[in-house]
């Protein structure tokens, strides 16, 4: 039986308390338990993590790269969402 029949898993690692889990790469494994053990051996040989998530790649839904421009357009046009949009007199402090 070939390894290509094993599903692909995406690996996310929390490097320390207070930080998000971050995508680090992928691997193949027959199930979640082995995916976690393999992820530990492949991606955390130097204490890079205190917590690992593995997610089957097939379960990840992503935005369409070709539609990215129109998909994200609504936020690009709203410059008044940024503090720099507003003028405040010179003497005003702590704002």
């Amino acid at each position: 039986m070939s390894t290509s029949q094993w599903p692909l898993w995406e690996v996310f690692i929390r490097s320390k308390q207070g930080l998000n889990h971050k995508h680090v790469g992928s691997l193949r494994a027959p199930d979640a338990t082995l995916a976690l053990e393999n992820a530990r051996d492949v991606y955390t040989r130097r204490s890079e993590g205190i917590s690992i998530w593995v997610v089957e790649s097939a379960h990840i839904h992503a935005t369409d790269i070709d539609e990215a421009a129109s998909f994200f357009e609504p936020s690009d046009t709203k410059i008044y969402r940024h503090p720099t949009f507003y003028e405040v007199p010179d003497g005003v402090k702590h704002m």
Partner: peptide, 15 residues
């Protein structure tokens, strides 16, 4: 090969 096969069998059993 037998290790990969065993891993598959074990994954199935656990599922």
């Amino acid at each position: 090969l037998w290790v990969r096969e065993a891993a598959n069998a074990f994954a199935k059993k656990r599922a």
